[in-house]
Simulated assay, not measured.
Amino acid sequence: MQRGAIEQALKEIDAAFARLEQGTYGICQGCGRSIPVERLEILPYARCWVPCQLRAG
C-alpha cells in the first residue's frame, strides 16, 4: 500500500511540473480560478482549489 501511495504522489508531482511548463500551474482544473497560494504551499501539486476538490469527492 505504501508503494502505491508513493507512486501516486510522484505522478501528481510530474503532472504539476507539466502544468508549470504549460503555464497552467496554479489554475483550478475544475473551474479555472486561481488556486490560493496558501493551498499550493501546503499541497504544491494541487489540481483544484478546495471548493472544487470537495465537489469532486
Rank of each mutant, 00 (worst) to 15 (best):
C52V: 09
W49H: 01
A18I: 03
G32H: 13
G4C: 09
L43Y: 12
S34G: 15
R3K: 12
S34M: 06
A5H: 08
Q22T: 10
I42G: 12
R55G: 06
P51F: 14
C28F: 13
C28W: 01
E21R: 05
R19K: 15
T24S: 01
P51W: 02
R47P: 06
E38C: 05
A9S: 03
R3M: 08
R3Q: 12
A18V: 08
G30D: 13
A18F: 01
C31L: 04
P36C: 01
L40C: 11
E7P: 05
E41C: 12
R55T: 09
R47K: 15
Q22I: 06
Q29Y: 13
W49P: 05
L10F: 04
A16T: 00
G57T: 07
G26L: 08
G4F: 02
Y45L: 04
I35T: 05
A16C: 03
K11W: 00
G26H: 13
Y25A: 08
E7M: 01
V50Q: 03
M1P: 07
W49R: 10
R33Y: 06
K11E: 02
L20N: 01
R19L: 07
Q2F: 04
R19N: 03
A56M: 13
A15K: 15
E7D: 08
Q8L: 05
E12V: 01
L40T: 09
I13P: 00
L10M: 08
P36K: 00
A46G: 11
Y25R: 07
A46M: 03
R55E: 14
R19I: 11
E41P: 11
I6K: 13
I13R: 10
I42V: 15
E12H: 06
A15Q: 05
I27T: 11
F17V: 14
Q29P: 07
G26W: 00
G23H: 05
Q22M: 09
I13E: 12
C52K: 00
E41L: 06
I13H: 13
P36M: 02
I42P: 03
G32C: 11
I35Y: 02
C48Y: 03
L10V: 10
Y25D: 10
Q53I: 06
R19F: 09
R47D: 08
D14E: 13
C28G: 01
R19E: 11
E21W: 07
S34V: 10
R55N: 12
K11G: 04
E7H: 06
R19D: 03
R47F: 05
G26S: 07
R47I: 00
A46Y: 12
V37A: 07
V50S: 05
A5R: 15
L40H: 15
A15I: 01
A5N: 15
R39D: 02
Q29S: 09
G30Y: 05
W49T: 03
I13D: 09
G26E: 04
R33Q: 08
R3P: 03
L40Y: 12
E7I: 01
A56F: 12
A15T: 10
V50N: 07
A15H: 07
E38Y: 02
I6L: 04
C31Q: 14
Y25L: 09
L10A: 00
A9D: 00
P44V: 06
Q8I: 06
K11P: 04
L20V: 04
